[in-house]
Design a protein around this nucleic acid. Structure first.
Lengths: 226, 226
DNA sequence: AGAAAACCAAGTATAAACACCTGATTTTTA
DNA sequence: TAAAAATCAGGTGTTTATACTTGGTTTTCT
């Protein structure tokens, strides 16, 4: 069986070594190169006779980031399949990486099993998406969605009313306005607000908004600039 | 084991009967209704006590087509999962259906096995895409995200100092703390803050944080709880 | 060189947020 | 059914944010 040649681009050496260790346990994987940034990777690919089949590409790297490197490599070598492997899971990160030529997108907090499966699938079929990323893509297609995704964690951590209040805080309403909207006393709203600060471990509204966005209680449409 | 209740909407009786036959061989499937167009389906769902878990929805139907029906049903009953099942595989058909609330999309020239798997997966996880459709979606991302407007407007709109202040506001620091960090008077920070509110057209910090996240001035790491 | 913008800083005042307290009623859960 | 949690609401006080004002210095651009 022909081995799959893999290159890893990531600025953290520890991560690269860890990945190498994990992947080399697969008998059909062959790690041919490690790069600490996009520039070095391109340098390698431009000079070597044996270009890799697959590249695991981090997004945030010094000198040249993953997006630029992917764009360049995909143009120069369309047969090299690039898998984004990063901790950033924003919609626009994903779509941008795919846009510039990535064949898949993986989050770093995933299991080795999924990485291995993704590499094999990408090598076989040319693209593959794990469920986590697929869900983000799925949600991304839904443009008109007024409804938001509240996961079960929120329901356990925050009460229904607290979520309502949090949503309105994120929409820039003041305590008085929120009290008016929900037909309750401003005192009650303040109580909810304090509970929210405690439960989300925030210092002030800024923290609440960030929490709301992280938990997708409110929707934002980010612009992409790495 | 609780059965999955399924409704089929398709104008061809032969197709409906065939599907019913295929699906009823699965012990956990229960076909509760057949509709020959969207209107009849909505009529059924509006009156019945037992709404289906899953709807197999054709696109082209007389009276009311699949897109309109999906839009209506998804709004009225968000818990009902709708699977588009049609012979049209155009990009816009797929994205439109997902946009109005479909949880999956299947092409009619697929195998019964895949239909059954899709129904089960959608019932379990809320969405699922077969490889054929996934490939179309994958290609769609590449073409659609090409036209993205990069705005260096931010750099013109906000000054360097204002961006610094905005970043710190987003990190939940108070005016005094920011003044301390930047070694300037708190009055100056307030001035910047006011300018930020004006320039970003925000009501309060909540708006500033949202702006900061949108413009990627600050990074957030979203949660992925499937 | 002159104008425009950015940057700094201050006064005064009000509105809002934050903190810490108390307790009653309803709903949920074990 | 008893305990726990959620919801509501009030008191008191401090801190922070917002609003409107003015004006001087530096940087940037034309």
């Amino acid at each position: 069986m022909k081995k799959i040649n893999i290159a890893i681009a990531d600025d953290e050496e520890l991560f690269r070594k860890g990945m190498r260790f994990l992947l080399e346990r697969e008998t059909n994987f062959n790690i041919t190169y490690e790069a600490e940034n996009g520039k070095k990777l391109i340098g390698f690919i431009s000079t070597t006779k044996e270009v890799p089949d697959i590249i695991l590409m981090d997004l945030k790297m010094p000198e040249m980031n993953g997006i630029e490197a992917t764009k360049f490599i995909h143009k120069a070598h369309p047969n090299i399949k690039i898998i984004a492997l990063t901790s950033y899971g924003g919609k626009s990160f994903i779509t941008n990486m795919i846009d510039v030529g990535a064949s898949s997108y993986l989050l770093k907090n995933t299991s080795p099993k999924i990485v291995i499966r993704t590499i094999n699938k990408v090598h076989e079929k040319g693209f593959y998406y794990d469920e986590k990323v697929l869900k983000i893509i799925h949600e991304n297609i839904i443009s008109s969605s007024g409804k938001r995704i509240k996961n079960d964690l929120d329901k356990k951590l925050l009460s229904k009313r607290e979520i309502e209040v949090l949503e309105l805080i994120c929409e820039q309403f003041t305590t008085l306005e929120i009290a008016d909207k929900l037909c309750i006393s401003s005192r009650t709203v303040e109580g909810h607000r304090i509970n929210l600060l405690l439960k989300t471990q925030s210092k002030n509204v800024a923290g609440l908004v960030i929490y709301g966005i992280q938990k997708k209680l409110i929707e934002i449409t980010p612009d992409f600039n790495i």
